[in-house]
Amino acid sequence: MEVRTIKVFTTVDNINLHTQVVDMSMTYGQQFGPTYLDGADVTKIKPHNSHEGKTFYVLPNDDTLRVEAFEYYHTTDPSFLGRYMSALNHTKKWKYPQVNGLTSIKWADNNCYLATALLTLQQIELKFNPPALQDAYYRARAGEAANFCALILAYCNKTVGELGDVRETMSYLFQHANLDSCKRVLNVVCKTCGQQQTTLKGVEAVMYMGTLSYEQFKKGVQIPCTCGKQATKYLVQQESPFVMMSAPPAQYELKHGTFTCASEYTGNYQCGHYKHITSKETLYCIDGALLTKSSEYKGPITDVFYKENSYTTTIK
């Protein structure tokens, strides 16, 4: 009895394709271990004539594949690729409408935090270190965002349907971005203890939790000093293409032309909904596939993004 075979390709990165001759009487799992086709788990399936010449994702289970996976995804987590594939199996079914010149995501599976993050990423200057993220990001900007969303979920250790947080998501993504040249110098002034300067680099240099107003941050924000008295913390120097200011959701007025974009969060910790506000020729609110415009805006804002380049204080 002759062994019926077909020729397929296996890959971990969709760049390096490895030619395989597979036995049609055995499952993919018996031949390769966990195997995925377009995100779908085909591990328990036997090869079919229609699979001839198709590319299958496999887990990096030998040295060659491990090197290829690390170079593309910059992670050695053995569960990463499987999590990416199972997320992709959902995100490829989502709709990605162009809204006001940006790629958004039609609401499904509690994905409003991903839509808000995706919209924000198209408006701030950011370059990702893992080629996987950078490639998928370019495709997302062009309207094909399924891979990018699935990668975000995998890097953030999230599953489809789980509630997510924009600030946490951005923080994970910033860790995989090139923020080497970003720098922030802060000064804390206390009447009792004097003053202390701190220099922050990388992710810490672009994120701040405690106030939404970048102007206020430049002037000074009140913080408790270690001595128990009130101290003032203010920005001395900022070198970065953008800054992200966050605070627990509270009524906040966004003035046209003073910011790049913002995240609105309605609801409580267990259950809520994100919308995205962007400042173009007027203010726009993007909620999944829905767009509304207004000249002014007041609502429960939790993150505001500002364009920056270089700032030095005039406070002496």
Rank of each mutant, 00 (worst) to 15 (best):
E2K: 08
E2L: 09
T5C: 14
I6L: 12
K7H: 14
V8T: 12
V8F: 06
F9M: 14
F9G: 07
T10A: 07
T11Q: 07
I15V: 15
H18C: 06
Q20K: 14
Q20T: 11
M24R: 12
S25R: 11
T27H: 08
G29K: 08
Q31G: 11
Q31F: 13
P34L: 14
Y36I: 06
Y36T: 03
D38L: 12
G39T: 13
A40I: 09
A40Y: 13
V42G: 00
T43W: 02
I45T: 10
I45Q: 14
H48G: 13
H48Y: 14
N49I: 13
T55A: 09
Y57D: 08
V58P: 07
V58D: 08
V58R: 11
D63W: 07
D63N: 12
V67M: 14
E68I: 08
E68S: 08
A69F: 14
F70G: 11
F70K: 12
Y72S: 13
Y73M: 01
T75Y: 09
T76M: 15
T76E: 12
T76F: 11
D77C: 11
D77L: 06
D77H: 01
F80A: 01
G82A: 15
M85R: 05
S86A: 14
L88Q: 07
N89K: 11
N89M: 15
N89T: 11
N89D: 05
N89W: 11
W94D: 07
Y96A: 06
Q98R: 14
Q98T: 12
V99Y: 07
G101W: 05
G101F: 13
L102M: 14
L102Q: 09
T103F: 09
I105L: 09
K106F: 00
W107G: 02
A108V: 07
N110V: 02
N111E: 04
L114A: 01
L114D: 00
L118N: 06
T120N: 06
Q123A: 05
L126V: 14
K127E: 14
F128R: 08
F128S: 03
F128I: 03
N129Y: 05
A132D: 06
L133V: 05
D135M: 09
A142Q: 14
G143Q: 11
G143E: 01
E144I: 01
A146M: 05
A150H: 08
I152G: 02
A154D: 04
G161D: 04
E162R: 01
V166D: 03
V166K: 09
E168F: 04
M170F: 10
S171E: 10
L173F: 05
F174R: 09
Q175V: 00
A177P: 00
C182R: 04
R184G: 12
V188G: 02
C190I: 03
K191I: 03
T192N: 13
Q195W: 14
Q195V: 15
Q195M: 14
Q196T: 14
T198S: 12
K201Q: 14
G202N: 03
V203K: 12
V206E: 07
V206H: 03
V206S: 05
Y208W: 00
M209Y: 15
G210A: 02
G220R: 02
C225S: 05
G228V: 02
K233E: 14
V236I: 12
S240W: 03
V243F: 04
S246C: 06
P248F: 06
P248E: 06
P249N: 06
A250K: 11
Y252C: 06
L254R: 01
L254P: 02
K255E: 14
H256T: 09
A262I: 07
S263H: 15
E264D: 04
Y265P: 00
Y265T: 00
Q270Y: 08
Q270F: 08
G272N: 00
Y274W: 07
H276F: 15
I277T: 05
T278A: 05
S279Q: 12
S279R: 04
K280D: 07
K280L: 15
K280P: 03
E281T: 00
E281L: 02
T282L: 08
I286V: 01
G288T: 08
G288M: 11
L291F: 15
T292E: 09
K293R: 10
S295F: 09
S295W: 12
S295P: 08
E296I: 12
G299F: 06
I301Q: 01
T302R: 03
D303C: 05
D303A: 06
V304D: 10
Y306I: 03
Y306E: 02
K307C: 10
E308S: 07
T313K: 15
T313V: 10
T313F: 13
I315D: 15
